[in-house]
Amino acid sequence: MIRKHNFKEIGGSVILYPNNYINDIEGEKLEEMCEAFLKKGVKKIVIDFSSTDLINSIGISILIGIIEKVKERKGAILFSGLKKVNHDIFNIVGLTRHIPVYKTEEEAVSDLKWEDHAAV
């Protein structure tokens, strides 16, 4: 069953909570959601993966799509709550080289260096 991804808006930022799997093209809904927030003027996006058990190659492709869209709008994006298996995958494909990854959502939001680190 495809569940709708949850989100929380804080000021001009949004925290997205993807479903437990991002492993097929239904995951594009997350990309569409980000696009909608960017169009609304939201510039800072945190994606918290603490409920996400699996991200495969399709999921990576979708996340790169999201990052590219944020880049086009000169926005910022952070990741948080990555489980080890997903962190390893992000490392393999080189996502962690460019996107700051925080242990928790709170850390990501409260990081004073947010703007400096997150701009892509």
């Binding site: 495969n56 190659s57 399709i58 990576i60 492709s61 790169i64 990052i67 494909v93 080189g94 996502l95």
Partner: peptide
Amino acid sequence: VKSSLYMVMGSFAAS
């Protein structure tokens, strides 16, 4: 075809 393309792109982190 779409899923296959995404898998290829995801494997190499191509945008």
